[in-house]
């Protein structure tokens, strides 16, 4: 692989995993959020060579077969998305949050999810879905 490939390029163009979206390309919007060995990162800022030998989780990896993850299910039930472009990133970021803190407070949810922008401004639905998934 070329040294200057970013993780987002490797995922979308080389592996065809197009669930992860590219938004701002400067690490701000959160659309390209992925987990690398469980850590939340922006795939647009990460050189692909940095993940050699590490486990990368994208939105494609959240469901087990046909069974959605509790967060995915809650996003659907609670209306945690509108146009959907930011949703893969929202789901990955929320997955990382709940892996780190089982029962985050409302403030902790807002602070953690602050880096994932939703241009439809559906933030209440997203917060509601995360709280529903905790229940």
């Amino acid at each position: 692989m070329r040294a200057d490939r970013r993780l987002i390029d490797a995922l979308r163009d080389d592996l065809g995993c197009i669930g992860t979206k590219e938004g701002c390309s400067i690490g701000v919007c959160g659309a390209c959020s992925v987990l690398v060995d469980g850590k939340l990162l922006s795939a647009c800022l990460m050189p692909a060579v940095f993940v050699s030998g590490r486990a990368v989780t994208t939105v494609e990896g959240l469901a087990r077969g046909d069974e959605l993850s509790p967060l995915q299910d809650a996003f659907i039930r609670e209306g945690g998305f509108q146009c959907g472009i930011c949703t893969p990133g929202q789901l990955i970021a929320a997955t990382a949050l709940l892996a780190e803190r089982r029962r985050p407070s409302d403030d902790e949810i807002r602070e953690w999810m602050m880096g994932n922008l939703c241009r439809c401004t559906g933030y209440h639905g997203i917060t509601r879905a995360i709280k529903a998934a905790m229940a």
Partner: peptide, 9 residues
């Protein structure tokens, strides 16, 4: 600093 994603990297 920034967001948790940036802080992780």
């Amino acid at each position: 600093v920034a967001t948790v994603r940036i802080r992780n990297q």
